[in-house]
Write a protein that binds this DNA or RNA. Structure first.
Lengths: 251, 251
DNA sequence: TTCGATTGTATAGAACAATAGACAAATACG
DNA sequence: CGTATTTGTCTATTGTTCTATACAATCGAA
């Protein structure tokens, strides 16, 4: 939605195709920050008028930039700027999703896809220090940065200690803020196991990936100030867009 | 005839026309000195094979460079590198044609177009200090630099003092060397009058100009060591390609 | 669910780019 | 004066680029 509205210059019969000239100008404007500063490109019709060419000519330019990995077009939504480098997600004792990416992405968002209260699977019960089959709250969340899915997480919480956690999360949009409703002002990451695998069908859809895409899987346990486990989480990061930065310094 | 023989790279379907890519490469190779170092480009067939394109495609590239003024094509002769700046012809007491241009042009050549012995016109007789109607040798010469006509001169010499001067000039190709055959080891320019006018029909043909072209006219008198006039010359320089640099320092 | 905004696809024609072959015109050279 | 070399012109064919119009598909929001 940003960018100057003045007409851009393209030279005809110069031996350089219009779509190539326009692609070069768009790429440069993006890196200069004068276009797509909010992560989204103006609609094709607006751009084609700005460059004084047919919409299809402009689409050729966008197609070239999509091929380069500079842009990403989504039918019905718009054309978005691809982050040039992977987001670096810090893994440390004080890992928080949004704060860790604050400097790397302009727009961060987490949304609740689904939630349920159900018996704890064995590994979740072990992680949370509960009896197998104890009631837990399960949250399915999706995190995005700059209009682009970054991770898909499944989290479990002790349903007895955190009744109505899903609602608290839905209202605050934040794990940290939801915990505060239960008197937890601070918490720490006790452990993180990192692995990688192909994305399953559900994650492919949620993360808008194509078949064969890879996800980084981080299985983490968060504990409160007393060291009692309060969250067991499995987060699938899009491997193409994220790298995990593990801090090994003393804490 | 110079330039490396290895095949040059051009990219197809890149949005940049082949002729444009080739024109850019040729322009760069010329300024780098790896092409046209002798002022002449290889034939179109050779270049088209070197770039791996059809001769017509290569001709489009050459046409663009001709339009830019970088090249000049002559039917039956070849394609030549245009000097980007005017040749600066020094006018001083020791003005010599070839030495003055030594550093500015790779290839300098003077040729004798015609010669005759005839009665001196009035202004020539005055210049040479002869009686009007005295016999003089008239030389019509053409000078070129880098395969390109630069000037067209008509010179007169005292036929009594310099018998057979035309033959001497034809054999040596140099005014200076021809004078040496008559015992003149050194000579000086006494005066130069500079004017400008449109080229006449004969000069248009000899200098390969198109109608309306302008010539700089330098009327000069050279004298020997004793100050006796030995040459009266009218030189027409192609105004597009030459500027005269008049030295005003004390001699 | 309907509507507007946006990207995706299809088709057709005009303009440009590249290839191919043949021959003309000018020049250089023996 | 021929002959070879080199640039200039012409016609034809094919592929790419650009324009134009129309409609489909997807998404978001009223």
């Amino acid at each position: 939605m940003s960018g100057q509205g003045q007409k851009q210059a393209v030279t005809r019969k110069s031996g350089v195709a219009l779509w190539r000239q326009i692609a070069d100008q768009i790429r440069q404007a993006i890196s200069a920050g004068t276009l797509g500063g909010d992560g989204k490109l103006p609609p094709e019709m607006v751009l084609s008028e700005r460059f004084g060419v047919n919409r299809h000519t402009l689409r050729s330019a966008i197609a070239a930039l999509v091929q380069e990995g500079v842009l990403r077009a989504e039918q019905g939504r718009g054309t978005f700027v691809e982050s040039r480098q992977k987001l670096s997600f810090p893994i440390s004792a004080r890992t928080r999703f949004s704060t860790g990416l604050r400097s790397q992405a302009r727009d961060r968002r987490s949304s609740l896809l689904a939630h349920a209260v159900e018996p704890a699977p064995r590994r979740v019960a072990e992680g949370l220090g509960l009896a197998e089959g104890a009631a837990v709250v399960r949250l399915e969340t999706l995190s995005e940065a700059d209009e682009r899915p970054v991770s898909r997480a499944t989290s479990w919480f002790d349903a007895e200690r955190f009744p109505g956690y899903a609602e608290a999360y839905a209202e605050t949009g934040s794990i940290t803020l939801a915990f505060q409703r239960y008197g937890i002002e601070d918490y720490f990451r006790k452990s993180t196991l990192v692995s990688a695998r192909h994305a399953d069908a559900a994650d492919l859809a949620d993360l808008k990936l194509s078949a064969g895409a890879i996800v980084l899987v981080a299985v983490a346990v968060n504990v409160d100030a007393e060291g009692v486990p309060i969250q067991y989480a499995e987060t699938r990061f899009v491997a193409d867009r994220v790298e995990l930065s593990v801090s090994t310094e003393l804490q």
